[in-house]
Design a protein around this nucleic acid. Structure first.
Lengths: 187, 187
DNA sequence: AGCGCATCTTGTCGTTGACAAGATCTGGTG
DNA sequence: CACCAGATCTTGTCAACGACAAGATGCGCT
């Protein structure tokens, strides 16, 4: 048991990311303040700068964390629709991560770790698509990703009040097979 | 010609919104500062507060402005796919508006003008859907809106580097009819 | 002529991000 | 064991910001 407050925190980096996720979940990424995170964790106001450089550096670390979790989730998918369902489900179960991941102006977009994590995610998505659309994986990936991402975003931003509550992954599967997208809808 | 700087600006409200749109387009909504907008327009640092209350009030006004433009655009649509195409196209031609419109934590979500503008937009989308899916307009609307919104968002956030450059409305139409969404994809 | 109110200004406070310089601890080398 | 190098954290400071308060200005209406 540490007497009071040891000079070295132990795992300050991880603690700050966790605190940031709490703030983001409660009040959004804009409410994240390095000084308040430092206060929560019990260190001085300038301690975070050592680990992350600046605010963008911290949020970039959060985004990388999120991409890793998403990759783990996508790796469990059994087929393409399950892939989309897991994508939407991830967004709703990890809203704090998801929000930061797709807000480029908050991030250091060229950080190697972020570039790598994003590439890994895209690889998972394209692999899932290619298994079913070997001739045109790029366009198919765009279509599936757009639908999943749009559904997730609209749910997260509270633009679909009447439809909340159900299982998001199942909702995606339903939407995915909707006849609206058929080439000959009138039969 | 006004001598130097008349005490009353004339149309400060509009001027501030315009300045805000410039800043958002250049550096994103987080870079918007009431004081810098005041500086650009040539008024004192507290002048904006009179028109918008606070920062959220100003961004809410921007969002309302955007919803009105979007409604005007959607009203020109000839059919459902054109509707989606115009939606995606609007997002890419008015990125500043679009970003603010779907970032609820930046806005005063209960402002009557915003609620009304959002309802009007939703009405346009659902009307377009209902014309083709009279039995289940809600789910069809969700599907089409998700696809359009997801495509727009991914394009805006720079997650689709290899596909940029083409006409976004046409891209939507292509994606919309992709066989990926067919109930029996293997035929 | 003059009153009321919207509009705009000046002044101020607490908070923040960023930077600089110094204190403290840890791990490894001699 | 002595000790050093670097990683980790602290204290101090600055400019910018949002918000608020109080006062100045000018427009429109009576």
């Amino acid at each position: 048991m540490r007497s009071q407050r040891p000079y070295h925190h132990g795992d300050l980096r991880r603690a700050l990311i966790t605190a940031a996720l709490e703030v983001i979940a409660a009040e959004g990424p804009n409410a994240v303040s390095l000084r308040e995170l430092a206060r929560r964790v019990g260190v001085s106001h300038a301690a975070p700068a050592h680990h992350f450089g600046d605010r963008a550096g911290l949020l970039t670390a959060v985004a990388v964390d999120g991409y890793r979790l998403l990759v783990d989730e996508l790796d469990r998918a059994t087929d393409l629709r399950d892939l989309g369902g897991r994508y939407v489900s991830f967004a709703l179960t990890h809203p704090a991560h998801f929000q930061v991941m797709f807000r480029p102006e908050l991030l250091d977009r060229d950080t190697p770790a972020l570039v790598a994590a994003r590439a890994e995610t895209r690889e998972r998505l394209e692999r899932g698509i290619a298994a079913r659309q070997p001739d045109d994986p790029r366009l198919g990936g765009l279509a599936a990703w757009s639908l999943a991402h749009g559904l997730a975003t609209l749910l997260l931003t509270g633009n679909l009040p009447t439809l909340e509550g159900g299982d998001p992954a199942e909702l995606f599967r339903t939407v995915c097979t909707h006849p609206l997208f058929h080439p000959e809808p009138e039969r």
